[in-house]
Amino acid sequence: MRILMVGHYPPHGGGVARHLDNLVRELRKNHEVHVLTYGPVKVREFEKDLVHQVKVPPIYGLRGTSFTFLGAKKIAKLHRKFKFDVIHAHFVGTTSYAGVLAKRRLNFPLVVTAHGSDLEHTAKLTIGRFYVRESLKEADRVVAVSHHLSKLALSLGAREVRVVPNGVEKLEEVESKKRFITFIGALREYKSPETFIELASYFPNEEFLVVGKGPLREKLEKNAPQNVRFLGYREDVGRILSQSKLLVLPSRREGFGLVILEANSLGVPVVGRRTGGIPELIREGKNGLTFGTFDELLNGVRKLLEPKTNRKAGRIGRNVAKRYSWKDVAREVEDLYKSLLE
């Protein structure tokens, strides 16, 4: 098959870009896969003929809207040239609506994947809700990375949704003493990093790490107790998790929660808020614990810091993470494409 993927892609960072990078890598073993992404970017040399871009202004609000219309024009141009079997847009909103506009002109098979904040945030905005609803209504197939997102997609107008979870990529693991309680994520309100900072004050003898960047960093550092270190954005997540005894995920919304599987893959149990797709990944009392109230968070951390409980949850976590492979994800997506083309 000849496939066009549309969405954020390396060198862009973020969950969608990482998802696409891994999925494209697997699908290219058997298919010709092109990518259309937000520009300007410097394309990696090994795929320079397969990655296309639309230059958009680097201004929040204008970037997405610009891509909707410029992207639709570029998709149509690329489709006329390459005759794609399937076009697959990642992130339901401005990105997927670019696919919808192009499909209206050329009537090709269109798949859209919901990743999280598209349905949990964009769909609540006035114009965003329009983009989301139209995309879900006009796509030939809708994919969601969690059952939580699948229900949201159905409530927003999708006719049917197939759940295909993220895979977990192999991270660098180093032999090291497990020392830290760790937070990994954007330092933004919906990730609730202030909950992690407050947690640290209850465990003064433990070392807490904050990994990530965002507009809340300065405020968080001012309020943080002395046992908290801020590392900023890091590429060596595997090395950091290898030194962590526990990961805490206090997000107020989380469509999937890939960092749970990344931690589990290195034997690190997780305490996560009971919201969004998090309870689908944390088997309660097995590879971690979920919480609703702050007291539940405190109790969960205390329990998982017990050495015997921690080791057992870590072993189970490794087994859980093995069930989420990109090879399996690619196979499911490939089957979806085939069903669309029959």
Rank of each mutant, 00 (worst) to 15 (best):
E173A: 15
P165R: 00
L231Q: 03
L341D: 14
V56W: 06
L171W: 13
L20Y: 05
N319K: 14
V163C: 06
K48F: 05
Y190L: 04
R273F: 00
H12M: 05
Y202R: 08
S244E: 01
L36D: 04
V210I: 14
G277L: 05
P40T: 08
G39F: 06
L266T: 10
P10M: 10
V228A: 05
E189S: 12
T195Q: 07
E32N: 13
R104P: 02
I316Q: 10
F294A: 03
E32S: 15
L199T: 00
G13H: 12
E235Y: 14
L101G: 07
H90G: 02
V268R: 10
E254C: 02
A123T: 08
R2L: 11
R44Q: 08
L78R: 00
K137Y: 00
L23A: 08
G71N: 01
P40V: 03
L336Y: 14
S201V: 04
W326V: 06
T95A: 08
G14A: 09
H79T: 05
D335G: 13
V145M: 06
G285D: 03
A200N: 00
L110K: 09
S339I: 07
H121I: 15
F203H: 03
Y337N: 01
W326M: 11
N107T: 08
P40E: 12
F230E: 00
L216M: 15
I75T: 08
F46N: 14
F180W: 10
F208Y: 04
A186R: 15
E160C: 01
E306C: 09
G238A: 01
N310P: 06
N205E: 15
R283Q: 15
K137H: 05
P269E: 05
G15R: 02
N227R: 04
S155L: 10
V35S: 10
V112D: 02
V86M: 08
M5F: 14
D140L: 09
G288S: 08
L119R: 02
E26R: 15
F67C: 08
V259C: 07
Y233K: 14
P215N: 15
A102E: 05
R133G: 12
E306T: 10
R252P: 07
G14R: 07
Y97P: 00
L247W: 04
K151P: 01
V111M: 09
R80G: 12
A263P: 05
L136Y: 11
L289H: 03
G14K: 11
N107I: 04
L152K: 09
R331Y: 13
V228P: 03
E198H: 05
F84S: 13
D328V: 09
K29G: 15
D335P: 07
G64A: 11
L261F: 00
R273K: 10
K55A: 14
A313P: 07
I75Q: 12
L20D: 02
A139P: 09
L36P: 06
V112T: 06
E120Q: 11
